[in-house]
Design a protein around this nucleic acid. Structure first.
Lengths: 207, 207
DNA sequence: ACCTGAACACCGTTCAAGT
DNA sequence: ACCTGAACACCGTTCAAGT
């Protein structure tokens, strides 16, 4: 537990320690005290290096959810990419060790993940505003879906053990139903974005 | 603070006290201890009457988010009702004193709120599965949107004071942009549900 | 039976005192 | 400067002791 005397404590080490505790014992076991004691240090250095607990959890979420967007595949239509983007984003978010961390993903991750999709839409002829709006819609739909789906619903304050009814899920929807629901939602949104864009392109769309 | 000797402590009183503290000092001030001391009682009776803290917060959310669905208006198309339903649901959820409570809304509230919409869709010719799927999609889209929008994103663990940049919002989107985004999303989903239903009705839809 | 007071095992955060 | 130990003001939950 003790550290060599003039060992520099890097902020990244703090996040590493927090991630270890997160994996081993869950998010509720991640505290300023548990992290600092794993590092063989009092809590004070954490305050000096990363700020308070909120900042620590933000940093953990940031580490966990970097590089969310899948790379573009040249020759792929924006529709196909959008679909793949949304599904891979969902997978990444679901893999977070605790779904509460997903809702800590803020601007930084969202704008970062949006960039390739916005670019793909612009390349397909969308103007800047349309592309941003379309991308934002898919982003919010995906993150919102995961927030509800993966037990942000049921684990906001951890109830120590909850039966989790064997493959069941928080709102009485099976996993395959949730998958279908997500696929359908994303497909409908992409089709809608497509029609909106075509309508905007026509000189004077019929109302 | 002291109570008359043989006064029955009703579970509802406990929830009342919790709601008072919620309104006055915020969700983080709602604790088993603060609620029990407001009632002039030790924490133990709360455990006997409503269970642990998780159960208490569930009960608070339940009280706060009952009767979510707006009543149907006879003569209104299922599309119009869906739109109104989604918008009013969003308003109700946004009005919760703390957005973390929204994610505690579970089956009970969702199924309750779904019923009139499912009925409206069935009355319009949807078969049972289609109606449930369509309604569920709108429900998840709405709740997910509110979860992201209204600072579930930024308030999961309360940071005491955060600047909240004057009318700004958590992900760099203005309120009117968020409103437009929500309206568009709901409209696209309703149009999509409509198209899916018509396609399913045709004897053999062209692929 | 059902309450209270006290206790247990924690928290986040701050601060005086040390080096 | 930057650490530690101790403290402050809390938590959720349980339990022996009282009535």
């Amino acid at each position: 537990m003790a550290r060599p005397p003039d060992f520099e404590l890097e902020p990244d080490e703090i996040i590493d320690a927090a991630l270890e505790i997160l994996d081993e014992k869950g998010l509720d076991a991640v505290s300023m005290r548990s992290v600092s004691s794993r590092l063989g240090v009092s809590p004070v250095p954490l305050y000096n290096r990363i700020g308070n607990k909120d900042d620590l959890l933000d940093a953990v979420a940031k580490r966990l959810l970097a590089d969310l967007a899948p790379p573009t595949d040249p020759g792929e239509s924006w529709q196909d990419y959008s679909e793949r983007w949304a599904h891979e984003l969902r997978e990444r978010l679901r893999r977070a060790p605790d779904s509460r961390l997903v809702l800590r993903t803020r601007r930084w991750a969202f704008t970062e993940a949006s960039r390739p999709l916005v670019d793909a839409m612009r390349a397909a002829g969308f103007d800047a505003d349309e592309a941003v709006r379309g991308c934002r819609m898919l982003m919010w739909a995906t993150v919102g879906f995961v927030a509800i789906e993966s037990g942000a619903v049921t684990e906001i304050t951890s109830r120590p053990r909850r039966s989790r009814l064997a493959g069941g899920d928080p709102s009485g929807v099976s996993q395959t139903e949730a998958d279908q629901l997500f696929s359908l939602q994303i497909r409908l949104l992409i089709e809608g974005i497509d029609r909106e864009e075509r309508a905007g392109r026509a000189p004077r769309p019929p109302r």
